[in-house]
Every structure is written in structure tokens, then in C-alpha cells.
């Protein structure tokens, strides 16, 4: 069975380590916050200028001056810091954020990512995504492996305008966990009950399959 959005987030959360500063993008990445192990402490960075993003406020504590990068009302966690946008991107560009999790429309075997623009359809802007992929030490991309029509999103070469070049090294899809290196996708884990054949069929880019591909455990 392909993973649900929540299961993808759960698998990403297993990649978090104690003491990590983490930036979570919009969509599935946001859900990762719900699955952080009780045994570790992580600090969430929101690029509008908040390090230590807390939970949503209760209705009586709503504050227009307290939002995250998705423009949702949030709270500050204990030990949080608030700063300006230039400072926020100094952290990001300067490589101080330990892990960035973001979504994508397409990824290719050279680690290129397309996530911000579909010509003539979706031109809303890149927001902070280009800075994040250029600056992060460690990026995990979450996405569905193929479109609703079955077209692969893991390609030999991205067809949409790029967000960044050669910057993605790990992808977690609804079907598999893959590493990108040496101009290929390397299959590391498969979703429970998903066959290697299905993953192969839905990966248009070069796929390296090990002798045994373990199923994900949660």
C-alpha cells in the first residue's frame, strides 16, 4: 500500500535527531511536527523570523502578530527567538539549519528540484524555497512518486523551471525512500506491501536497486 501523507510525515520524522534545527515547508512537511519523538528535542524554524515554532494558539490567545511562514497563527515554543527576515535567511543561507523538509513537483537523478512554478498555470512565486535549497546542509524532499495519471515525478531531468540545482540528496515518497547520488536514485526502503517492480515502473530516472530492499518500519 502506498503511504498516506501522515505516514510519509511519520517516516520523515524518524530522520530527525536530537538538537536539530529544522525548517518544514508547506504541505506534508508541516505534518512532520506531529510525529517528533518524545525522546528528542528539535527546534522548528519558520522563515518569516521565528526559531522555535510552537503549536497553534487556543482561540482566546489568537494574535495577528504571531504567524508562521504559511501565514497561520502559531505560538512560540519555550526557548524561541524572533528576528527579522534578513537574519532568518542568514541562518538558512549560511548553512546553520540542520535539516530542511520540502515538497516538490519534480526531482531528478542529479538532485535538481522543481517546486515553484508551472508555466502558464501556477506563477505564485518561489517564496523562500530557492534560499532553502541553496543553503541547507541536508534536505529531504517529500512528494508522491507519480502524478494521479501515473506519470513519474522522479525523472532523469526535471521538465519544469528549477528551484535549485544538485541540492537534493534524499526523497521520501508514498512508495519509497531513496537517496540521490552518482547521477541516480538509489532505492533504500520501500513502503510496506509495495513491490520493487511498481517503484521501478513509476521511476523514470535512473534507479539503482539493491539485492534486497527492506520495507519501511515505523
Amino acid at each position: 500500500m502506498a503511504l498516506t501523507r501522515e505516514q510519509i510525515a511519520k517516516r520523515v520524522a524518524m530522520e530527525l535527531q536530537d538538537g536539530y534545527y529544522v525548517n518544514l515547508g508547506i504541505g506534508i512537511p508541516t505534518l512532520v511536527a506531529n510525529y517528533v519523538s518524545d525522546n528528542i528535542a528539535v527546534m522548528l524554524q519558520s522563515e518569516n523570523g521565528l526559531l522555535g515554532m510552537g503549536q497553534y494558539p487556543t482561540a482566546d490567545a489568537l494574535d495577528a502578530d504571531m504567524i508562521n511562514a504559511g501565514k497561520e497563527t502559531v505560538t512560540a515554543a519555550t526557548g524561541a527567538a524572533i528576528f527579522n527576515s534578513a537574519e532568518s535567511f542568514a541562518m538558512i543561507r549560511g548553512g546553520h539549519v540542520d535539516l530542511t523538509v520540502l515538497g516538490a513537483f519534480e526531482i531528478d537523478q542529479n538532485g535538481n528540484i522543481a517546486s515553484w512554478m508551472i508555466p502558464n498555470k501556477l506563477i505564485k512565486g518561489m517564496g523562500g524555497a530557492m534560499d532553502l535549497v541553496a543553503g541547507a546542509k541536508n534536505i529531504i524532499c517529500t512528494m508522491t512518486h507519480a502524478s494521479k495519471h501515473g506519470e513519474s515525478k522522479l525523472l532523469s531531468e526535471c521538465s519544469l523551471p528549477l528551484t535549485g540545482v544538485g541540492c537534493i540528496n534524499k526523497v521520501i515518497t508514498d512508495l519509497a525512500l531513496l537517496e540521490i547520488k552518482d547521477d541516480a536514485f538509489h532505492l533504500l526502503e520501500r513502503a510496506p506491501g509495495v513491490s520493487v517492480e511498481e517503484i521501478q515502473a513509476k521511476t523514470q530516472g535512473r534507479l539503482i536497486i539493491p539485492k534486497n530492499t527492506p520495507e519501511m518500519t515505523f
Binding site: 487556543t58 482561540a59 489568537l62 501565514k71 497561520e72 497563527t73
Partner: peptide, 13 residues
């Protein structure tokens, strides 16, 4: 006015 774009809340405990 300080309009809020996306009001997201959690239930009070």
C-alpha cells in the same frame, strides 16, 4: 485592523 490571513487554533485544554 490587524487582519489575520489564516486563523489556525487548537482546542483549549
Amino acid at each position: 485592523e490587524k487582519r489575520i490571513e489564516k486563523q489556525t487554533t487548537q482546542a483549549a485544554r
